[in-house]
Amino acid sequence: MDNFQLYSKKVLKHVKDPQNIGEIKNPDGVATVGNPVCGDIMRLYLKIAKRKTQKEKQEEDYIKDVKFQTLGCGAAIATSSMITTMVKGKNFKDAGKITNQAVAEALGGLPLNKMHCSVLAAEALQKAIKNYQQKQKK
């Protein structure tokens, strides 16, 4: 019962109260991705910091803060909101493992024709990390 809606309760909750909305001034990594299918835009900002790993006492980069801006449908908003909560505090190795399926699952599933919105969120994250790594090389 109660499962009559197109979107899960979690998706609707994120649409109503999205997490980590906004902009990070002078971000360490940023990426804007667009969806050619329906014309939405998503931008993801990362603040990166260094910390000691527990075991080897080495230094690693991790995502200290993350924010997003999205112009798009309910699924686009919910997936961007969800992915920010999933990556916050993670190192790149773990953040890199977050697939769009994982985001969709964390939201209690998405309708089939809305999966591409989650692809966009995952793509924004990958590109923002890459953007940071490229900046480091310079």
Binding site: Y7, L12, V15, K16, G74, A76
Partner: peptide
């Protein structure tokens, strides 16, 4: 301008 239809619809529905 600056707001997507389905998202508006969901917030109205809410």
């Amino acid at each position: 301008e600056g707001a997507e239809g389905e998202a508006m619809l969901l917030l109205f529905s809410e």
